[in-house]
Write a protein that binds this DNA or RNA. Structure first.
Lengths: 242, 242
DNA sequence: ACCTGAACACCGTTCAAGT
DNA sequence: ACCTGAACACCGTTCAAGT
């Protein structure tokens, strides 16, 4: 759009109540999340963000250091409160089941954020101690300690993000129509001699298995697979308890 | 750098042997991988790539449609041939163990590519049928069929990428020094009342558990955790065989 | 067919100036 | 303290022109 940056609305009203600031860190993050929900991470930029907030692009920099920080905060907001409440008489299994379900629910509400999830948990300065403690407490209650506790914890975190990133990350945005049918064509062209198991199970796998999908988790959720996945993770942890 | 684009070297020599083209799709991808290995995905751009290839930036577009395609090809190269050879008398467990090890090895050789892994397997037009068939054949040999086959397959793929992305994705690049000590400070400040299990196991977890690290997998590999993780995945699959 | 070279639109960020 | 407004460096991509 070649139009000049839109001036802030309510220029007069803004100064009414003791010059209350128009922007805040929270409003910036919130608007950023809305932008990402609508247009995706790839298309997210500070000028659109500023337009949504009805300020000049550079105003944002008063409240936030840079774009990277905004993205980090956005993910933090999306996964705020994923850690379930510890309930009395709640065994470790049901705690972890609830954690897995809540994590996926958070992602489902903001699927476009999924690509940022990996970068999020990797080196985040604002470590979510409640999340970490929740997992550790559950595993500890399961009887894991020492190296096994570490191994169990890493497995849980890896499992949490692995499925969800895959399931919800946006598929190629451009000419989706054409891309979708291209994938389907590719699948129909499988050579049963070279790839027998795949060929034999094609109807079962098509659009329901990673790599072999043409819709992502928002349109074609993998509920059954995820439910099974969670039970597999629990069984895996079970096997760790010697 | 304010210097003008560097002209191609060997301008004369290039035309000697029947005007052999200086560039090729393979050389572009190869150079792109080298760039990413050295500078990371975030800093990767077409002008540096062109400089490495000693051509003008726009020359690349003759061999490749756009930047996204380059990145997709780079990941494809890194994970080319991850699927292990099927061996005679090779049970499904050892096949999957080899697959997990090879996958991680590929990532370890090019850790900066890790952030692209998710986007890779999500909707890739050039589906790696050998990879898919390898996993399916192993699970099929394990006795899984129908919905369980799908669930097992999705679990394996999720597990493969979840750990590796986490382990190798680059930590915040800027002022790493300061960031590292900041993380360590945060950890030392854990409140044992609020987060008892974490506090009690701090030395065990520090720099060895996801989220609680200040070095990534290239500097501080999580070998033991990964070995355990693979066994947990296998145990999870085992539990699927009713 | 393959590369040069100019050019464009876009974007993150800095900084001085306003109020 | 908080926002405007100009400005800069950088970057992906298009396209006409060369050979």
């Amino acid at each position: 759009m070649p139009s000049p940056p839109r001036p802030p609305r309510a220029t007069a009203a803004r100064k009414s109540a003791a010059s209350k600031p128009a922007l805040s860190r929270e409003r910036v993050i919130e608007a950023a999340l809305a932008e990402i929900d609508e247009r995706g991470v790839a298309a997210f930029n500070l000028r659109n963000l500023a337009e949504r907030l009805a300020v000049y692009p550079t105003a944002v920099y008063w409240h936030v250091p840079n774009k990277t920080a905004i993205l980090a905060e956005v993910v933090a907001v999306v996964f705020r409160d994923v850690a379930p409440q510890q309930r009395k008489n709640d065994d470790w299994r049901s705690y972890l089941r609830r954690l897995f379900q809540r994590y996926r629910e958070s992602a489902r509400r903001h699927p476009n954020v999924a690509p940022l999830v990996a970068a999020h948990l990797v080196g985040n300065l604002r470590i979510d101690f409640d999340f970490v403690e929740g997992v550790l407490a559950a595993l500890s209650a399961a009887g894991l300690a020492g190296a096994r506790l570490v191994a169990g914890y890493n497995a849980v975190v890896a499992a949490l993000i692995g499925f969800v990133i895959q399931e919800f990350s946006p598929l190629p945005e451009a000419d989706t129509e054409q891309w979708q049918s291209a994938v389907q064509q590719r699948l129909l062209g499988v050579d049963p001699a070279a790839h027998p198991v795949l060929a034999a199970n094609l109807p079962l796998l098509a659009n329901k298995a990673f790599i072999l999908r043409w819709q992502n988790g928002s349109e074609a959720p993998l509920d059954d697979s995820y439910a099974s996945f969670v039970e597999q993770v629990l069984a895996g942890l079970e096997s760790l308890r010697e």
